[in-house]
Structure formats: structure tokens, C-alpha cells
């Protein structure tokens, strides 16, 4: 009987550890990538440093390695029209600091078209994304929008 009770304790510990290491990482979109008012024929770039950059936060187990994958739009849309939106190979930045600093991120000039591998910090991650829209000279006026998706996956490392 004594031997059986010890086994029960051990099992309980293992389960508890498993739940802790698997604290669900969450991705939360904080702000949109806002290009604001655009003049036809005048391309507009939003820096990843700008307050109008897109921002996501990732929470999860500190030190856990994750991959970040963006699903990026090619166009933003309004009724009956679209407008190219571009992302450069340096349009993404990440900071894993407890107090994230957009102006001086821990990982800068990242390519949002490629999988980004990074470890969560004590405060998780903050992810910023800039971009550029190219309105035509006779671009239809209106409010344009498109979805930017960020998927975060534990690597198990």
C-alpha cells in the first residue's frame, strides 16, 4: 500500500509539470497597421517604429522558443477597388523585454515573409510590423482594409 501511494504522488507531479510547461501561448493583436489618409498617386510608408505600425503581443512560457509566421495581404480593399500593400524584408521587429521598447527592439529588421524563430521573454513578445501602400494616380477614394494574421507556434525547444 505504501508503495502504491508513492506512485500516485509521482504521477501527480508529472501532470502538474506538463500543464506548467504547456501554458497556452496567446497572440493578441493590439493595433492595426494604419496608413491613415492617402493621396492618390502618393505612396505611403508606415515604419515599424511608428505608432501606426501593427502591433501584436505574444504571451506564454518565458524562455520557450516559438516561431512566428505572418499571413500578409497583397492588397487592401474597398468596395470595387484594391490597392497594393507591400512589406519589405526589414519591416518587422520584436522585443522580448519585460518593458517592450518599440524604438529599440531586441530583434530588428526582420523579414515578415519568412518564419521568425524567437524565444519568449519574461513579458512574452511584442511584435511590430510596418508596410507600404501604393495608391494609383486615380485610386478610388474610400476606406481600404485587409487582414494581417500572425500565427505563433511552440517549437518545443
Amino acid at each position: 500500500m505504501i508503495r502504491k501511494r508513492e506512485l500516485f504522488k509521482l504521477t501527480a507531479l508529472i501532470v502538474l509539470a506538463a500543464v506548467t510547461s504547456g501554458v497556452a501561448q496567446t497572440v493578441t493583436g493590439i493595433s492595426d497597421l494604419e496608413f491613415g489618409d492617402i493621396f492618390p498617386g502618393v505612396p505611403n510608408t508606415v515604419s515599424k517604429r511608428a505608432s501606426s505600425a501593427a502591433e501584436f503581443t505574444v504571451t506564454g512560457t518565458a524562455g520557450a522558443e516559438v516561431t512566428l509566421d505572418f499571413l500578409l495581404p497583397t492588397y487592401v480593399y474597398t468596395t470595387g477597388a484594391n490597392m497594393p500593400v507591400l512589406f519589405s524584408a526589414t519591416d518587422c521587429a520584436i522585443d522580448s523585454s519585460l518593458v517592450p521598447d518599440q524604438s529599440s527592439p531586441s530583434a530588428d529588421n526582420l523579414n515578415p515573409y519568412e518564419t521568425i524563430t524567437y524565444r519568449l521573454g519574461a513579458g512574452g513578445l511584442s511584435v511590430w510590423l510596418g508596410g507600404r501602400v501604393i495608391p494609383g494616380l486615380v485610386q478610388k477614394s474610400g476606406n481600404y482594409t485587409a487582414t494581417i494574421r500572425l500565427t505563433v507556434t511552440y517549437t518545443g525547444n
Binding site: D32, E34, F35, A54, T147, R149, V152
Partner: peptide, 20 residues
């Protein structure tokens, strides 16, 4: 472990194009 391996969220890229 399987139930918490991945998450995603969406935000928007937005712009207001002014009159030609």
C-alpha cells in the same frame, strides 16, 4: 502540450484614400 502549441490573431491594414 498539443492543445497549446499554436495560436494566431488577426489585425488589419487600413488606409483611407482621398479624392483623386
Amino acid at each position: 502540450a498539443d492543445s497549446t502549441a499554436q495560436d494566431f490573431d488577426d489585425r488589419s491594414a487600413t488606409a483611407r484614400v482621398m479624392t483623386v
